Amino acid sequence: MKQFIDFIPLLLFFVVFKMEPRAIDLAGHTFMVGGIFSATAVLIASSLVVYGALFFKQRKLEKSQWLTLGACLVFGTLTLVFHSETVLKWKAPVLNWLFALVFLGSHFIGDKLLIERVLGHAVTLPQAIWTRLNIAWIVFFIFCGAANLFVAFTFQEYWVDFKVFGSLGMTLLFLLGQGLFLAKHIHDADPDTSAPKPKD
């Protein structure tokens, strides 16, 4: 569920981006809504609201959420300041590669791999399996970053659609694959299924 909270601001960004540009009056001020720049402003505002609410409720944010919020604020603000959507196109690749770097760093820093820290409370696996899972996340984030970058600068008319639904689709498929992988190894590690039953 936590992974999909990150998509709320992104979905709002998509809705506003797809709107026909129009002027709206709010509190005595006129704002343009529709298109990349108003969508970017909505992305920043909704990210602050979503992660602010989470912080208020949980009294903390996960590192991945801090990274997501930070990237949104930095790239979103620069997009508005320089009035250039090119800056925003780098947000998804850079953020994905930062996540890959964090997962990679856990191989060298700390006593546990990052994926084991995240899932270790729920499942017990051999260290070799944790290593394979952690590497899979590294590869996934590198691939997602590269895919976002390729689409953003090659198929520019589709990059927002891919940023929202492509990223969501890739994440769902990867999580499904990870679930199947974990189910197999949990089943193999289950003493009730792997140990021979005593004969009567």
Rank of each mutant, 00 (worst) to 15 (best):
V87S: 09
V81E: 09
V118H: 09
H121F: 12
G76L: 05
I109R: 05
I115L: 13
A92C: 07
V81N: 12
L119C: 01
V123P: 05
N96S: 06
H83S: 04
T79D: 06
P93E: 01
S106K: 08
G70I: 00
V87Q: 01
T77K: 13
F55A: 13
A122G: 10
L98E: 05
L119V: 00
L88G: 14
E62Y: 02
L78Q: 11
T86C: 00
Q58E: 13
G70C: 03
W97S: 05
L98W: 06
W97C: 01
W90F: 15
K91H: 04
L61C: 08
G70W: 04
L61P: 15
V118C: 11
F75T: 09
R59H: 14
A71P: 00
G120Y: 11
S84R: 08
V123D: 11
I109G: 00
K112W: 06
L114V: 10
G70D: 01
E85G: 14
E116P: 15
S64V: 14
F56I: 05
G76W: 01
Q65H: 15
K60Q: 14
F56M: 11
G105N: 06
L88E: 03
W66N: 08
G70M: 06
L67R: 01
L88Q: 10
F55R: 14
K89F: 05
E85P: 14
E116Y: 14
V123F: 01
V118Q: 07
S84K: 06
G110I: 06
V74C: 09
G76D: 04
F103E: 02
K91W: 04
K57S: 10
F56T: 10
T77F: 12
N96D: 00
V94I: 12
Q58T: 07
A100W: 01
Q58V: 05
V74K: 09
A71W: 03
Q58S: 12
F55M: 13
H107T: 02
T124Y: 00
E62P: 08
C72W: 11
A71E: 04
G70V: 03
